[in-house]
Amino acid sequence: MLLADARFKPLVFVLCLLSGVSGCEPTSVPENRAADILSQQSQAGFEQVLPGQPLVFPRDHLSHPGFRTEWWYLTANLETAKGQWIAVQWTLFRIATQPLSGSEGATGWQDTQRFMAHAVLTTEKKRWQAERFARGGIGQAGVEGEPYRLWLDNWRWQGLESSPFPATLTFSDSHSDAHTDAHTNSDTSMSDSSMAATLNIRSYGNLVRQGEAGYSQKDPKDPRLASYYYSMPFLLLDGVVTLDGETIAVKGEGWFDREWSSQAMSEHQTGWDWFSLHLDDGRALMLYQLRSTQHVPFAFGSLSWPDGRSIALSSDEASLTPIATSTLSGREIPTRWHLQVPAQQIDLDVQAQREDQLLPFLFPYWEGPVTASGSHNGQGFMELTGY
């Protein structure tokens, strides 16, 4: 999911905004040019992703300021005592405005690290979301170990040791919210909207190194376009969420992703489709494809077990096919998919639980909970960009 990843589309504007570059107003970077900008964001001096470099822990749970971009990403499907579902997405992004080699000794307001965070809570009837930005170097946001901690303002991931788990995630946001009909793109009402969450998170399975031992190539013909990528897909969560003043106990399953890199994507790549699924036989499936104007989509993924077993899936072993779309804010978004991994007897119909999940951040992208049926039942998250 990185770097040729939807999660980095918002970073295009943020990188400009927080580094003081002119000509980066949101209107100057329309959605259909985000891929162009991402494909050009490599810059001499940043560290590069190379195959054969082992991931080392707990070091690689922390920040990698020599690389241009990275993120810490949680998604979760939760349930109330009454059987109602609530989905959670929480992300911390780090962006370097210039290479470390050109910013040695920069501290305080001159620090070259910038941060952005997204928080989203979704139910069947409504979605709550918030986006925040911060500078590094002044205590407003950061990443620390011993004990492990991520934070931006009062949004905080607090671990107990040097690992991300076990941990408690807390965030809250309150604002006036314009409710928009996704099919007409017209404001229908204004109301006060508030959300908060306190979630305890623990891992019951092993860490999964995606790609080749953590080296995840994003273009089939260019090994330079890659990220370091690992997942912790076997998480259990419990706690409370508060939605518009109502506090609700929840519990369920989650997925944690980490990636970092300096080179985003190829000029010819136009968008991404990403799925993380917990199957009813206990396995975790990740499938991801990048669409291109020059070749068929480049697909890859992994299938993992809680006991530590994991197999990488190549483009000729998996297929991702859209089978139905929804019109959201004038865009045709594929909200139902057919996913297949024939060698593993996986044949799934994946459906968005809530179709209106085009998140209204600086660069909108679709992300939300999904259900799976067919050869297996399951649930998870889907992320779509470039439509």
Rank of each mutant, 00 (worst) to 15 (best):
G271A: 02
W274L: 09
F275Y: 02
S276D: 07
H278D: 10
L279H: 12
D280G: 01
D280Q: 09
D280R: 07
D281G: 13
R283K: 09
L287P: 03
Y288D: 07
Q289M: 01
S292K: 04
S292E: 03
S292D: 12
T293R: 07
H295V: 13
H295D: 15
V296D: 14
V296Q: 15
F298P: 00
A299Y: 00
A299P: 01
A299R: 09
S302F: 09
L303A: 04
L303V: 01
S304E: 03
S304N: 04
W305P: 06
W305Y: 12
W305M: 09
P306V: 08
D307Q: 14
D307E: 15
D307H: 10
R309K: 14
R309S: 15
R309D: 14
A312M: 14
L313G: 02
S315C: 06
D316E: 14
E317G: 07
E317F: 04
A318R: 07
A318G: 03
T321L: 12
T321S: 03
T321W: 00
A324W: 04
T327V: 15
L328G: 10
L328Q: 12
L328V: 15
L328N: 11
L328F: 09
L328W: 05
G330T: 09
R331F: 08
I333V: 15
P334F: 02
T335M: 14
T335D: 11
R336S: 11
W337M: 01
W337Y: 02
H338N: 03
H338G: 00
L339C: 07
Q340L: 01
V341A: 04
P342A: 12
A343G: 15
I346R: 06
D347P: 00
D347H: 07
L348E: 02
D349P: 02
D349G: 08
R354K: 15
E355V: 14
D356G: 06
L358N: 14
L359V: 14
P360L: 10
F363N: 11
P364F: 14
P364M: 12
Y365P: 01
Y365K: 12
W366G: 08
W366A: 05
G368S: 09
P369W: 06
T371H: 06
A372W: 01
S373G: 04
G374D: 04
S375W: 08
H376S: 06
N377L: 07
